[in-house]
Amino acid sequence: MADRGSPACVGCAPGTGPCGGKGMETLRSGVWITNPVAVQVLGICSALAVTNRLENSLVMGVALVFVGVGTNLFVSLLRNVTPRRIRMIAEVAIIATFVIVFDQILKAYYWEMSKQLGPYVGLIITNCIIMGRAEAFALSNRPLVSMVDGLGNGLGYAVVLAIIGFFRELVGTGSILGHQVLLSEWYTPNQLAVLAPGAFVALGFLIAIFNALTRANQTDEMGSQ
């Protein structure tokens, strides 16, 4: 995991450095230990809806990283001046701004993708992951480590989506990123994979594998103690 650290935080001793030494741990828990999709099962709506193609999944992952990092930064910056009573409204306003910015850029420079993703970019506003991280983390942590948290959770979401998208596109159309890799002479695409039920099945398998891996991990750690 050591190679995934944000440069600013690699090698910080506990309690020192810009992230207070929590950078690596924060990133690791976002991507792996408390992965928003595979462990907390949040953000499922979009994870199921856009993963019929790998490209869509990747763009959606980028969107979540962008919105997550931006939102966490600003929520954290404003955490001491935001009145508690209206903090949720403030968070939603910040999230919505970032989401709309991303959506507009997509519409202007990546029209085909914008059409494919349809309403799901806009729906990031209601994505539990973003709102949850802003509430649970950015509101009580310093800006830089909050950004790392947004990055970790965004990446955690992106990785899961990419895996599901990869397999759904491969099984459902025999191609990867639009390039035919399984020849149609001997491979009949299974269209279930690109339909909504296929997303449920794929996500179910992924969570099962994730659980099996983390469980093996835990027993290892217990054994070594």
Partner: peptide, 11 residues
Amino acid sequence: RVFLALGYPRA
């Protein structure tokens, strides 16, 4: 059967 009906509707 559902798997086949949705996956390979044509067949």
